[in-house]
Write a protein that binds this DNA or RNA. Structure first.
Lengths: 215, 215
DNA sequence: ACCTGAACACCGTTCAAGT
DNA sequence: ACCTGAACACCGTTCAAGT
C-alpha cells in the first residue's frame, strides 16, 4: 500500500463525465472559454486524452445540446385548451434558455433536436390545435412559429456582459426611440417582454391561416 | 517611367475599403472564413497592415454591422394605420437578414445599433401606435417585440449548409411531429413561415397590454 | 507614413511513444 | 487500454525593422 498522496481513486474518463463538465464550464465561464485544453485541465487530464472518448470538439457540442434538452420538462399538461397548452410548452423552452443562457445558443443550428427532445409535448400541443379546428399544416405552422419565437427571443437577447448605458440618439428628434433604448439597457425588462410577446403571438394565432406553400 | 509591371495605381488601404471587403468576404464564404490573413490577401496586403486603419478584428465586425445597417431601407411609408406601418418596418429588417444571411448574426449582441440605424422608421411606427391608442410604454413593448421577432427569426433559421434529411422520430408515435420535421428540412417554407408569424404577432398586439414593470 | 517579417501566445487536432 | 509529449497548421496581435 503506497503512502504517497495520489489522485484519489482516479475517476475514469467517460463521455458522460466529459459532457457534464463541458456544460458546467460553459455555464460558468461562457462558450468561448470551452477549450479542449481548459476542459482537460478541469477534468484533471491532458487535452489529448479527451479524443479517445469523443469524436472532437463538434462532437462535444452536440453532446452538450443533448444534455441541455434532457432538462426540458415534458410532464403532461392537464390543460385541454390549445392556447394554454402552447403557452406552457413555450414557457418550458424559455425556462431552459434562462437556466443555461451561455449554452442555449448552441441550439441555433440544431433546432431539429429540440423538436425531437420535446416531441411528446409538441405532439400533444398540435393535437389540441387540431381538436380546436386547425388543419394539420395549420397546426404545424403555428407550432413552428411559437418555437422560433422562443428560440429567437433567447438568441436575440442582449449580451450578459453588454454595454449597459444607452447611447444618445442625436438631438432627441426621436423621443420614443430614446425611451425605448433605455428599456433595452435594462435586463429586468426581459421576462416581461417575453410574456408580452408570447401572449400577443398566441392571441393572434387561429385556425384557417395556413401559410401558403411555395409555388 | 518604369517599365516593370506593378500593382496598377496601388489603391491605398482605407477603413472603408477594409469594411466593404470584409462584408463581401462574409457574404461569399461565411463568418468563420473572415480571417485577418484572408482579409489581407483579399485586399492584396499583409494581414498586419490592416491594424493601421482599424482597431482590430472586433472593430472590423462593428464596422461591418454599420455597413449592413446602412442598407436598411428607411423611406417614409405612406400608410397611416399602425399595423401596416409595423409590418412594413418588420419586412424591411427581414429583407436585410435575407440579403446577408451570413453577416446578420453579427447583430445578435448589437441590437441597439439596429434601433439607431432604423430610428426614423421606428419613431414613426411608434408614433402611429400612440395615435392608435397605445400608451408610450405600450408602444415601446410592441415595437421591441416585433424587432425581437424578426431578429430571432433570422437567428434561429436552420443553417444554410444544414443536414437536409429529417431524422426519423422513433416508431412514428408522433405523426404530427414527424410531419413538422419534414417541413423544417425544407428551406422553401421559411418565407411563408415568416409572414405567418408576423401576421399572427401583429394581429395579437393591441393597446392596453403593457408588460408589467419589474417589481 | 505606410507596409512587412518574424515572433508570441493561443487554438483544434494528429501521432508516435510511454505506462 | 488508456493517457501523454511533442508537433503541426492554424488563429489574433505586437513590434522592431524596412521603404
Amino acid at each position: 500500500m503506497p503512502t504517497h498522496v495520489r489522485a484519489p481513486a482516479r475517476v475514469p474518463l467517460t463521455r458522460e463525465r466529459i459532457l457534464t463538465c463541458a456544460l458546467g464550464l460553459i455555464d460558468e465561464r461562457g462558450l468561448d472559454e470551452l477549450t479542449m485544453r481548459a476542459l482537460g485541465s478541469e477534468l484533471g487530464v491532458e487535452a489529448m486524452s479527451i479524443y479517445k472518448h469523443v469524436p472532437g470538439k463538434d462532437g462535444i457540442l452536440d453532446g452538450v445540446v443533448e444534455l441541455l434538452l434532457e432538462e426540458l420538462e415534458t410532464t403532461r399538461s392537464t390543460a385541454t385548451e390549445w392556447r394554454a397548452h402552447l403557452a406552457e410548452a413555450a414557457r418550458r423552452l424559455h425556462a431552459l434558455s434562462q437556466a443555461h443562457p451561455n449554452a442555449f445558443p448552441l441550439l441555433r443550428r440544431r433546432s431539429v433536436s429540440a423538436y425531437v427532445a420535446g416531441r411528446s409535448m409538441a405532439e400533444q400541443a398540435m393535437g389540441r390545435m387540431v381538436a380546436g379546428g386547425f388543419a394539420r399544416g395549420d397546426a404545424i405552422c403555428a407550432m413552428r412559429t411559437v418555437v422560433r419565437f422562443v428560440l429567437g427571443f433567447a438568441l436575440s437577447a442582449p449580451a450578459p456582459g453588454a454595454p449597459a448605458g444607452a447611447p444618445e440618439v442625436a438631438g432627441s428628434d426621436y423621443p420614443l426611440v430614446e425611451a425605448l433604448l433605455e428599456t433595452v439597457a435594462d435586463p429586468a425588462c426581459e421576462d416581461g417582454l417575453f410574456e408580452y410577446g408570447l401572449d400577443a403571438l398566441i392571441r393572434g394565432l387561429r385556425p384557417g391561416n395556413t401559410a401558403a406553400p411555395p409555388p
